[in-house]
Design a protein around this nucleic acid. Sequence first.
RNA 1: GGGGGCGUAGCUCAGUUUGGUUAGAGCGCCGGCCUGUCACGUCGGAGGUCACGAGUUCGAGUCUCGCCGUCCCCGCCA
Length: 429
Amino acid sequence: MGGYSLSSPSFTLKRTQWCGLLRSEHIGQTVTLAGWVQRRRDHGGLIFVDLRDREGLAQVVFNPELDSLVHSSAHSIRSEYVLAVKGLVRERPEGMVNPKLATGSIEILAEELEILNPSKTPPFMIEDRVDVSENIRLKYRYLDLRRPAIFNNMLVRHKTAQCVRSFLNDHGFIEVETPVLTRSTPEGARDYLVPSRVNQGYFYALPQSPQLFKQLLMVAGFERYYQIVKCFRDEDLRADRQPEFTQIDLEMSFITEEDIISVMEDMVTTIFKEIIGLDLVTPFPRITYAEAMARFGLDRPDTRFGLELVDVTDVVKDSGFKVFAEAAQKGGIIKAINAKGAASLSRKDLDDLTGFVAIYGAKGLAWIKVNPTGWQSPFAKFLSEEEKQGLTAKLGMEEGDLIFFGADSRPVVNAALGQLRLLMAGSSS
RNA sequence: GGGGGCGUAGCUCAGUUUGGUUAGAGCGCCGGCCUGUCACGUCGGAGGUCACGAGUUCGAGUCUCGCCGUCCCCGCCA
């Protein structure tokens, strides 16, 4: 690499405006833009270049009749070239307005062009609709970050952090940074370890959360503390789980459970209002852990749809169907979900679903189809008339319905039917 | 720790079930033409270690074994 010079920069055109913020109020002004080439449309005569900066796109027009030299050098422009362009902002001709662009009513008539940097052909298009593997995107992270959608993610994160700080500051919280290289404070997850050079053979543990320090601050009388902080947990990954992540960590003294819930509802409501303009209604609906497990089988229930789990243990605990009876005898439970109108599922579909619940430890998946001709089910013949009536009433069974049963220990039944519920609703992969 | 999917052009994928002539498509890329496009149009063209290695076979992108990479899930994780 060469050395750096403190002498004048090697470019002559200095940016005066953001591309994406040009509006009709700028018509008549001569501006200088700097940015990346989104796309070039070369008509042989006229050349259109969409120039992109972090605020958006603006269309630059190169006209051979205006300056044939500038026009001919515009000929060599390719995607992702970095340009500086000086030109007149003018209203677009009649019928040429592009309503899809915020800058679509104006364009810049190029008078000077400086190619600040050429670019190799990028491995994928810099646009929101890209369909590229995570691998490729990460390999060319600097290109992926140019995409408006990704930039916007970062922007939302920035605004949210600012919003949270502002809210908590206004509510008497004090932001404190806590140490990262520290002693292990086991919380269940494995620690990330950092070897110590000074104390050979010893290790620091990266914090799974700032728990210990938070308590220290409370004992010391800080009253209200917060921190937007990285946490580290050395566990295996999932699609939605990373080994390092950021928490809004906070603590309050001399308060009740209702106080903390209320402040958190206020904070979340403020974030949604300020960041995306959405009004949330408080108080938020509340549900106990026991109720969540009973009705949805999971501690993070998706309450946007029905398909709730129904405990039918008392109806079939003495059933002639051994799978039910034995589950009850061993202290387990029998639960069911009514997939309304799903009786049209094929035998293969049901076999696939049986394989699906097996992932969560279920040894089988009993089912009943309510057909026009009556019940269709591998085990209905073992049920008494009383049990059939009990199930019909408790599950609201009607023609066209498909009922799934789980009979096992409570955790297995909840996990299997809880996940099956999500699958049937199409809200999970 | 365990199970499953995927790997073919720069990118996204088809082709693998049933081995058989020169491995295809869309987008992108390169060149010609084009003065109102905005996912420009049009004509032409280039581009391949079928992840890698070994094996079976007259013949392997296709079958077998191994190996590497990657994604998803279970366990784990609050």
